[in-house]
């Protein structure tokens, strides 16, 4: 198993930390992982993205030009990365703020109203965990027990009291993700 994932959105949406929790969960599940962030001027432009690879084998390139799954959280990233999903792959997006919806017919497309849901829950900070839950529903690349350990490892100890809220958000994400277009 090798899953090559792109997560792209605005800085402050928790893109990098979501990637880190996913990667740490992979480590806890004894997988090979890599986490390659955008840095420098790319970030300063307001967008943030990270490539996470989880695999049973040694990972070749941590830097990729096409992905099994792209998780897209703003319009700029949609414009830039819709075409980067491998044919037959998966695109997950939050429609909040999206003006041009994905139109490819050779990939599976899911939407998840995570921004709305986080606002309803009164916890905008768990937005990225709702997204993570949605992704894990479609692609269970790491088992829930390892996600728990991944949260413990990647959150500083002073925030460990927040782990139950994060796990609730992950479960919520699993409930609310819905298909937009599926290949037969």
């Amino acid at each position: 198993m090798t899953e090559e994932i792109l997560i792209a959105g605005f800085g402050g949406q928790g893109v990098l930390s979501m990637g880190k929790i996913l990667a740490y969960s992979g480590v806890m599940g004894n997988k090979e992982v890599s986490w390659m962030p955008s840095y420098g001027p790319e970030m300063r432009g307001g967008t943030a993205n990270v490539t996470v690879i989880i695999s049973d084998e040694r990972i070749s390139s941590p830097i990729l030009s096409s992905y099994d799954t792209a998780i897209i959280l703003n319009q700029q990233s949609m414009d830039k990365f819709e075409a980067s999903v491998k044919p037959g792959g998966i695109l997950i997006y939050d429609p909040n703020g999206i003006t041009r919806h994905p139109s490819r017919k050779d990939i599976n497309i899911y939407s998840i109203d995570a921004a709305d849901e986080a606002a309803k829950m009164g916890m905008t900070k768990v937005f990225n965990m709702i997204i993570l839950g949605g992704f894990l529903k479609i692609k269970p690349v790491v088992q829930p027990e390892f996600i728990h350990k991944g949260l413990e490892k990647s959150l500083p100890a002073r925030h460990h009291n927040m782990i139950p809220e994060n796990e609730t958000a992950i479960e919520k994400g699993k409930d609310i993700i819905k298909p937009v277009f599926l290949l037969n």
């Binding site: 880190k20 990667a23 480590v27 992982v33 890599s34 390659m36 962030p37 840095y39 420098g40």
Partner: peptide
């Protein structure tokens, strides 16, 4: 380089 320095791996 920045790629090796900035990326996280096990």
């Amino acid at each position: 380089d920045g790629a090796i320095g900035q990326m996280m791996e096990k």
